[in-house]
Amino acid sequence: MSVLVYVETWEGKLKKASYEAASYGARLASRLGTDAYAIVLNASDDASVLGKYGIKKTFSVKGEHFQHFHNYKYVEAIAHVAEQIQAKALVLSGTFTGKMVAPLLAVKINAALITNVVSDPQEVTPLTVKRSAFSNKGFVYYESQSEVNILSILPNALGVSESTGQGEVEEIVHTPETNIEIQIVEIDKVKGKVPLPEAEIVVSAGRGLKSPDNWGMIEELAEALGASTACSKPVSDMHWRPHSEHVGQTGITINPQLYIAIGISGAIQHLAGVSGSKTIVVINSDPEAPFFKAADYGVVGDAFKVVPALTEAIRKFKAQ
């Protein structure tokens, strides 16, 4: 018996969300009295760094079949390693890739799949974990009815736990058997930016900014903080900002350490996508804005004055 963590890459590099999954897998393995292994596909990074998060050994799968993401091929390789090491628990991160992989993997290895996991297991036999549901408006404890389990971690919900270990890496070859063909025609990626669901700090703005021309100050604040930018739905609907920045019930769900909402009223559908954030700061000129009820810190004031002042203060703080 063992634990297997599926480690994702981003342009060949190991993803931050994967360190979180690795840490989770290692903690789970130690509770089960066993070891945690990892599998990574098409990585250019040295996977031995996963040792720091408690991974004993990483199976690194390379080769032409895995150069492009193909959910069925990836699932085959993961299932192959899972079988080899007799994994009873598999851990991955609930990213876009994770969601393409997890349900297929569950069917392939006949496992229970529990997604949106937000805590370490309450119990290990039977496996019982807390997951987020009802679009951030509730939690459900799920008890597994299966011998084999896949846990998909809500990105950023738990963070990493580091130790000092050094992990082994074993390169393996796998030739997938699937005859499902996926012909990738085009990939359109924003270069050099942290993908929004992975960002630790997010600066977000809404209709209160009045015009797309006013986003300069938002980007400056984000840059000072090393943050990603997001927006409310009307802002992306009006094409002030790209759809990929739209957070909320119908957009992306994020759980950063810090979410700064500027000129956003805090409608229930917006909160559904952001209320998992650890700390929420709201900047709004209307003291009655509903968002203040969901905020940790609030500034009642005009964004056009408050935001540049905050950027200045952050820069000063960072310079210290």
Partner: peptide
């Protein structure tokens, strides 16, 4: 076309 982290991917499937 599907969403991927930070972008979109277009593909042809049968």
């Amino acid at each position: 076309i599907r969403e991927i982290d930070g972008g979109k991917e277009k593909s042809i499937i049968s």
